[in-house]
Design a binder for these strands. Structure first.
Length: 487
RNA sequence: UGUCCUGUGGCCGAGUGGCUAGGCUCAGCUCUGCAAAAGCUGCUACAGCGGUUCGAAUCCGCUCGGGACCUCCA
């Protein structure tokens, strides 16, 4: 089997994955800023990294998956002044900032559960790691790569760039970056245009603030990830992930801080997921074009024709490779929903498939194809194509058009288990068991009656039963072995 | 303006210098009392113009279109 290869933003190449200390793998992903509901674009990123986490686990790695929750220090504007997003929202909703944090953290977790993602190993918060951040800032000041002015601490990008390569993650030179930056306003106290805040002084109206060597204040946005990744994964760890939009600013600054602090390259592989777009434009909070997952499930959004189940939405996302942009549309969603249901139906078919003594399918090769797809930078599009190959074989066998041995059937079951359920993290959505058991008995009865009616050639009545059931969302299928039903 | 990414059949989406995924839709066929489901068949694409090559959707250049970054955003 070919090795796992992943696309590293740092080198702009696909590279073989070699953990620092196999079988242990350190994975850090930038989590949400919990001052508002997560939108679907946010979800795409976390679903992508859930897939990556799941596949690494499937390969047998012992993964420590750290995904932070940003609950402080995220400023509203670009001037490094004023209150942060939580305090602002708190004032708006007349709540404590920590109530805001709690509300949206819970909402985030609920959505992630609906999407059937695994919880990370550690989910640290910025407010829980103020000391670690202060310690890191102190050390960066000691190294002369940050400076304090009036209770604010800034990172000195130009000085840092003399020692390291500041623009390495985006493959850009400092001069280019400087050219692209807005001119400083007169009252700005930063020395360089690209300098960014590590610590921000509290104003009298600031609600969330902590004591520090530079007075009362709160940490800048980027320092939390440097501090927490170092604490839980070490000075250099394997994989750091996040959305592409974080690459230029947040991750670039994160590398700078970490490298300034410990003189080491903090991360071996940087993975970035592409954006979810609506009508070609990035879904973002500031544009106000964000879909909330709840709206999508319920179908109560102006752009939606109907609601879609979480698993159908997830399948829609997984049909596109994580590094490609994904545009949201009703047609695409409907196509995915249909395909997903067929794939799931295939698993049911598989479970009552009868084995033959000979086989004319190569299931082992199919399984290898699945691994090959995933090992090529987690190519879920290709993986899903192979799963549909499996589906075709299953249905053909069910129609007696091809033959499978018991070994083949068992291997197909294991492919479903490993790839559909464990790696892609999809599940068959079913109604609760009590109702389901009762319904099952009722349906057995109805089918029994209808079969009698059919043998009496009373097709008018049998069709009526079928149509009425169909109206109720239950579909009857007449097969040679008798009728079956599904919701 | 600059830098980077991108443009695939009705829709969505992989992809390698030659053997041309997959899903959905549509049409026909098989099966069926009729449906549904499933299977089979068909629709065969790579923005445009040049160039490199025996051969390019895949490499290079230009043009046109879309997007990202330089403000906050997964």
């Amino acid at each position: 089997m070919q090795p796992l290869v992943l696309y590293n933003t740092l080198t702009r190449k696909k590279e073989e994955f070699k953990p620092i200390n196999s079988p242990f793998v350190g994975l850090y992903v930038c989590g949400p800023t919990v001052y508002s509901d997560v939108h679907l674009g946010n979800c795409r990123t976390f679903i992508s990294f859930d897939l990556i986490y799941r596949y690494l686990l499937h390969l047998g790695y012992k993964v420590r998956y750290v995904r932070n929750i940003t609950d402080a220090g995220h400023l509203e504007g670009d001037q490094d002044e004023g209150d942060d997003k939580f305090a602002k929202k708190a004032k708006l909703e007349k709540l404590e900032p920590m109530e805001i944090v709690q509300k949206y953290s819970l909402g985030f977790h609920n959505i992630m559960r609906e999407f059937n993602t695994l919880p990370p190993s550690i989910e640290p918060t910025a407010t829980g790691h103020i000391c670690e951040q202060i310690e890191m800032i102190k050390e960066i000041i000691n190294k002369n790569l940050a400076y304090e002015i009036n209770g604010n601490v800034y990172f000195d990008v130009e000085k840092y760039n003399k020692l390291f390569n500041y623009g390495q993650l985006t493959n850009r030179k400092l001069e280019e970056l400087l050219d692209g930056t807005r001119v400083l306003t007169g009252q700005d106290e930063k020395r360089g245009r690209l300098d960014f805040a590590l610590w921000i002084k509290a104003k009298p109206e600031t609600i969330m603030h902590w004591p520090s060597p530079w007075g009362s204040g709160f940490p800048g946005w980027h320092i939390e990830c440097s501090a927490m990744s170092k604490k839980y994964l070490g000075e250099t760890f394997d994989i750091h992930g996040g959305g592409m939009d974080l690459q230029a600013t947040h991750h670039t600054n994160e590398i700078a801080q970490s490298q300034a602090y410990c003189n080491k390259n903090p991360v071996n592989y940087w993975l970035h997921t592409n954006m979810l777009t609506v009508n070609g434009a990035t879904m973002s909070k500031s544009k106000g074009n964000g879909f909330l997952p709840g709206e999508l499930f319920a179908g109560n959004h102006p752009l939606l024709e109907k609601g879609y189940a979480p698993m159908a939405v997830k399948f829609f996302m997984l049909q596109t490779h994580y590094r490609s942009p994904l545009d949201f549309s009703n047609d695409a969603l409907q196509a995915s929903e249909k395909g997903f249901e067929r794939l799931m139906e295939g698993y049911n078919t598989l479970n009552y498939l009868k084995a033959d003594s000979i086989s004319n399918e190569n299931i082992i090769e199919l399984q290898l194809n699945c691994y090959a797809a995933m090992n090529d930078d987690f190519n879920t599009s290709v993986l899903i194509a192979h799963l549909f190959d499996a589906l075709k074989i299953i249905n053909s066998a069910n129609d007696k058009k091809t033959k499978l041995t018991q070994d083949d059937i068992d291997l197909l079951k294991s492919i479903y288990q490993n790839f559909v359920f464990d790696v892609l993290g999809l599940k068959n959505e079913k109604i609760d068991s009590k109702t389901s058991q009762a319904l099952s008995k009722v349906m057995d009865l109805i089918i029994d009656i209808r079969t009698k009616v059919k043998t009496d050639k009373n097709f008018e009545l049998s069709d009526k039963i079928r149509d009425k059931l169909n109206d109720a969302g239950i579909q009857i299928k007449d097969t040679k072995e008798g009728a079956t039903w599904k919701i």
